[in-house]
């Protein structure tokens, strides 16, 4: 177990180093002059040249990389070329918003997708199965921004039930501000007993979270259905049926656990992807997440920010995979750590 753990952590570190080299090369080979961005508008050529030296951009790439990694080892992600502020503090500002959104989205996807997948598999060709398969195809293939607009039109414009965009209402921002503790607005407002803010944050979270949930929902339904159909044909499930165990007990208590590992792997992948891959949803709902921060950084060739995000997401990805492996090992005692 410990051996397995250490091995996986070391492997993760190797992956991260490879990732950092790759990202570094790509961001530095990309066209654009970080020094010009650093000094800002209408700068003189001399100013740009000075910045090139200050930023160490005149040194060979491997040296620049070594310096970057040395800083990284000391927990320093460098300064944003665009804002001159520490990349780490900027990521710390954007990441909780992304996490709050993506975690909610994935939770919604699991809460809806898991039962629907199970119900579909219990009676292939039945009503639930037809509904589940239709929804799964729709939710995976519908463009997310289109879904986002649709939700806005229905729930904001037509029904007036939910807010258009943002994380919390401006009145809350002005009159009942939430003090930042975790950066999760729903959590922070609860911790402070600020109910007005909590309900505002919750209402603002619904539409973007549902939008984010669509894709993983479809994946989960399909994964659960497919793996459950495989499991249901197995002898141990048939035996329980032959001994009179109830269908729902068999499906939800027994077979689902067998069907879970592949689904978990998919969920972990979707999660890491969603953290930066949802910039369209963030745009439509004006959600101050990491996706837009990253898109902006890539476009302006703000390489310390791109590197920083890549490494943070990389770490999250590696940790998440480790957690999934541990959970799968917890589910299936036959999995031995090799």
């Amino acid at each position: 177990m410990l051996h397995f753990f250490v091995r996986r952590v070391l492997l993760g570190v190797l992956v991260l180093i490879g990732l950092s080299v790759l990202t570094f090369i790509i961001t530095r080979v990309a066209p654009g002059d970080p020094a010009a961005l650093w000094v800002g508008p209408r700068a003189s050529v001399a100013q740009i040249e000075r910045a090139t030296v200050t930023l160490g951009l005149n040194r060979p790439l491997p040296v620049q990389y070594a310096i970057y990694m040395d800083d990284l080892a000391h927990g320093n992600l460098g300064l944003s070329i665009e804002t001159h502020r520490p990349v780490s503090s900027e990521i710390a500002s954007y990441l909780p918003a992304s996490l709050e959104l993506v975690v909610s989205g994935i939770v919604i996807a699991i809460l809806l997708g898991l039962p629907l997948g199970v119900l579909a598999a219990m009676r292939p060709g039945g009503v639930f199965d037809a509904v589940a398969r239709l929804l799964a195809v729709l939710s995976v293939s519908v463009p997310t921004f289109w879904l986002a607009f649709l939700l806005q039109i229905v729930f904001f414009k037509d029904l007036g039930l939910l807010p258009l965009a943002g994380r919390v209402s401006n009145l809350v921002i002005a009159l009942d501000p939430i003090t930042r503790i975790t950066g999760f607005m729903t959590v922070d407002s609860l911790l402070q007993g600020n109910w007005v803010a909590f309900f505002s944050a919750l209402r603002h979270l619904v539409l973007p979270a549902v939008t984010i949930a669509a894709y993983p929902f479809g994946l989960i339904v399909r994964m659960v259905r497919a793996s459950l159909l495989d499991v249901i044909a197995l002898d141990h499930v048939r035996l329980l049926r032959a001994l009179g165990q109830k269908r729902y007990t068999i499906a939800f208590r027994y077979a689902l656990k067998n069907a879970l590992p592949p689904t978990l792997t998919v969920i972990a992948l979707t999660f890491a992807y969603s953290l930066t891959g949802t910039f369209l949803v963030e745009s439509v709902f004006n959600w101050p997440g990491l996706g837009n921060y990253t898109a902006q950084a890539v476009i302006t060739n703000n390489y310390p920010a791109v590197m920083g995000v890549t490494i943070v997401i990389g770490v999250i990805y590696v940790v998440l995979n480790l957690v999934v492996d541990l959970v799968i090992a917890g589910i299936d005692p036959r999995v031995r750590y090799v």
Partner: peptide, 24 residues
């Protein structure tokens, strides 16, 4: 039939390796 299965009729399968759920 649910009330018959297990209560009035017990069943044992051939393959003991496949007939018990490995994760329980």
């Amino acid at each position: 039939l649910l009330a018959v299965r297990g209560r009035e009729v017990g069943v044992v399968f051939q393959d003991p390796n496949a007939s018990l759920n490995p994760v329980f």
